[in-house]
Every structure is written in C-alpha cells, then in structure tokens.
Amino acid sequence: MTIIAGCDVGSLTSKAVIMQQDKILAVEIIKSKAKPQESANLVLENALTKAGLKLPDVQFIVGTGYGRDHIPFVHKTMSEISCHARGAKWLVPSAKTIIDIGGQDCKVIKLDKTGNVSKFIANDKCASGTGRFLEVMARMMNISIQELGEVSEKSKQPIQFASMCTVWAQADVVKYLNSGFALEDIGAGINMAMANRVSMLVSAIGIETDICMTGGVSKNSGVFVSLERILGHKIKKARKLDPQLAGALGAALIANDQIKGRA
C-alpha cells in the first residue's frame, strides 16, 4: 500500500491531501498559524487522523506554498505553480489555462498539450486581486467571505469601484455603506473589481480554453461569475474536490510520480 501526501502551507490557509495512488484518502484545510512548521504539522496530523494513518505510513510527501521551505517532514518541495497546475489538470483534465487565486497572490498558468507548465504569470506585491482583498472588504462590510460571494448574486446594479487598490477600495466601501447603498450591490462591485484585476493577468498571458479556477477565491461565486463575464468564456468548475485543495492535491500527485520513478 503506497501512501503519499501533499502539504500546501499558504498565507491564509494550510491544506493537506493524503492519497493512495490515485485515490484520495483524506483532506484537511486549516487556518494558517504564525509559524509555517506549526501549520504544516497540524494540517497533516489532522488529515492523517481522518485517514486512520500515522506519519511513518506515508512513503513520500511533497511540500508547497509560501511556507514550503519550513515544513519539517517533506521529502521534496515544489513551487505552487507546478503543484496547482498538476492538481488542476487532475481536477479538470481539459484545462489549458488555470487561474489560481490564493490568500496573498494570484497566478495564471498555461499548460501545454502534455499538461506541463508552458507559461505563468503572478501578481506582484499588491493585495488587489488576492484573497486578502476580499477578506479586507468582507470585514469592512461585517460579513463573511462566503457571504460576500452569495450576496452579490442578488445584486441588480453592481457598484463600479474607481480603484482596485485595497486601501482606496476600502475607503470607497465605507463611503457607499454610509450612503445607504445595498449590501449586495457593494458586494457585487467588490467581486467585479477583483475579477477585473485578475482578468488583466489572464489577458497578459493569453486565454486558451478550457479555463479552470483553483484556490480559495474560486469558491466565491461572485468573482467566478464576474470573471466568466469579463473573459467571455465559461470557467470549468472543479467538481471532484474542493478547488482550494488543488495545490496540496498537485503536491500529492507529484509525490506519487516520485514513488513511481523510484519503482
């Protein structure tokens, strides 16, 4: 029985996927701790408990995410780009363009015919276009990120935000709240601003269908639908697994490759 695992320590959440060859045994998502090693230990431990396994049962573990270099138990580290690409390809086999929006960055990855990364682009040192942007805006509106996605579905007249800068948009949210604008229109405006920012990255790299979305923000229906509208293409939903787990899943699949390579 070959057990492999992927551990993705991100800035906001840490994820783990435990697999037995192509079968997923257990998954876990936790809020990241202050220290990456603490997050890694906890998320893997939780996942192992769910699977009824212990650390020595796992033959190969690949680490990824911003905290990858501080995970004590990994056999190999890989960049988030490669892991998300691999995970997304498993979730949506026809994917050619992957939009990954995480807590602190946003990446657009293009795959070649064989599923290898042929090009990627990532945003730089700016919160707009990342999960952090949504988190800040949701906090301003006193709702959860989940609700931020849901409320915008009811909007008939989304507000157009003048700036995609997190600081300026925050000031705008306060202005619109104080002026009595509907919560759903403000929420829809935020999701639209986010989608606009991300669409710039997608345009810079060039769209090739099918498109799929990974990362925590892909679960926000408001951003998802806005992005589809701006890009003029349908985005394929990952149905086999929570798309937030794509990085950890990709890491586990790469771990599987490593084991196969050894055999």
């Binding site: 960049s79 780009i81 290898n116 990532a122």
Partner: peptide
C-alpha cells in the same frame, strides 16, 4: 516571491 517564481521557472 522571487524565489517561488525562479523555482517554478526551473520546474517549467
């Protein structure tokens, strides 16, 4: 951030 990009580029 730069390290992540370099690593991803090498993997590519």
């Amino acid at each position: 951030r730069i390290k992540m990009r370099i690593q991803a580029f090498l993997e590519r």
